[in-house]
């Protein structure tokens, strides 16, 4: 890895200040994506601003109908949180299936969502639950946040401070892992909330997407039978040695049905 200047601010304000005006500076939360990227010399940041010391960013709160997860909250903490398990068990389940225990002990929701890896799990929950991403400057609705392959609505130097998930009446996440990396080859998050039914798919395409046809069918009848004949077109889906676009399209259907069944349990 190339060397860089290292900073460990104590507040969001200081972190934002350190990033300001430095286009090549990068924030670091868990480092579970950033450090492997640096080790492979795929990035050359001038500065790394470690958010690990920013206390205000970590933690889970229930605020009314929402579960609010701080940006620096580790996957392991979401997976084991009593509040999350009670309010949105599917979210805890999802967090508990990201990577391995050591990755979950370090990786954070803010880092994962900001990175928007096409094979990441959290984007499925953010879109599936119609969550709101809060940054140091604004609130961004899930549907406006993920812009494409590794692209988000975040501006340079903008930091995710928390993500607010509405409680769901029913929800489940089904992940079909890539056999090698164990990231999501296809992950489907299905949720029925006060705001309606959502089906969000991660892993299959360049960016998380919703399946409108399934949402409509499930809104009428929230059962796997309702979506069994809905075919997902393979066009534009990812294709690699572990899964062709056709296979991924097929898996979206299988995982969606299984998610609905799990949500109904």
């Amino acid at each position: 890895m190339y060397d860089f200047a290292y900073h460990r601010p104590k507040s969001v304000a200081d972190a934002v200040g350190l990033l300001k005006g430095k286009p090549e500076a990068r924030a670091m939360s868990g480092g579970m994506t950033l450090i492997p990227t640096l080790k492979q010399r795929l990035a050359r940041p001038s500065d790394v601003v470690d958010l690990g010391g920013v206390k205000e960013l970590a933690g889970i709160k229930v605020e009314g109908n929402n579960v609010v997860v701080g940006g620096m909250t580790r996957h392991a903490d979401v997976a084991t949180s009593a509040e999350v398990k009670a309010a949105i068990p599917a979210l805890a389940h999802l967090a508990g299936h990201i990577g391995d225990p050591q990755v979950r002990n370090r990786g954070t929701i803010g880092g994962s969502v900001a990175n928007n890896d096409p094979a990441a799990d959290y984007p499925g929950a953010v879109v599936g639950l119609n969550a709101t991403v809060t940054t140091n400057t604004r609130k961004i609705a899930a549907d406006d946040f993920f812009k494409g392959l590794f692209e988000t609505a975040l501006a340079d130097g903008e930091l995710i401070t928390s993500i607010s998930f509405p409680k769901a009446e029913k929800a489940a996440y089904m992940k079909f892992p890539n056999p090698a990396s164990r990231y999501a080859m296809v992950g489907v998050f299905v949720a029925k909330t006060a705001g309606g039914v959502r089906v969000a798919v991660t892993g299959a395409g360049p960016c998380v997407f919703r399946v409108k046809a399934m949402e409509d069918a499930l809104a009428k009848n929230f059962s796997s039978a309702a979506i069994k004949d809905i075919k997902i077109p393979a066009d534009g889906l990812n294709s690699d040695i572990h899964g062709s676009a056709e296979y991924r399209a097929h898996l979206v259907g299988v995982m969606a049905r299984r998610a609905v069944d799990a949500a109904n349990k």
Partner: peptide, 10 residues
Amino acid sequence: ISGSYMDYTM
């Protein structure tokens, strides 16, 4: 293509 544990399934 299978040049790391990301793609070579151990």
